[in-house]
Amino acid sequence: MRYLIFFSIGAGLWLLLTLTLRIDTLIAGAVVVILASIIFGGYFTGRPVKFLQPHRIIWFIIYIPFFIWYMLKANIDVAYRVLHPGRPIKPGIVKIRTTLKTDIAKVFLANSITLTPGTMTCDIDGEFLYIHWIWVQSEDITEASKIIAQPFEIFLRRIFE
């Protein structure tokens, strides 16, 4: 079942990328997508229907502008640190705790943290994340979790769990 869903998503992406119905592109796409779904289909989510529930999709649509706003803030922050003559950085690696349980939610949390102001994920170990922070505001685990992870956890919990 999950192989079939993986195959149809891959085929849809291939059709969107090529936008032709010529027989040779279709055959090439079929070969690639079948190989990909044999290799990676097993890693695909076990309950795909979960992600079609309307409230998850609505929260995801709300999450996109929120995320782009944070990305813009991150870039203005980096621009400030790059162009400032004194180069104001105070880097360090801190540890935070997340309340998210599923793997896909943790992946999205790590990616969101990487693209937002001054923080970047180094490693995930169970419920702990190691974060490289360009301006360490707090070395305490609860306070750092509150500053770094909480804005995203509110959304990601509703989308993925």
């Binding site: 991150a74 870039n75 980096v78 621009a79 640190r81 970047m120 490289h132």
Partner: peptide, 29 residues
């Protein structure tokens, strides 16, 4: 503009971790 800023960050920041911060954020956006 953000691509250029990311590249400047790659030159100005001191170690590999800070350089990755600058280049990843700016070049992605």
């Amino acid at each position: 503009l953000f691509d250029i800023l990311g590249t400047v960050g790659l030159i100005r920041f001191p170690d590999v971790y800070n350089r990755l911060q600058a280049s990843t954020k700016c070049v992605t956006l």
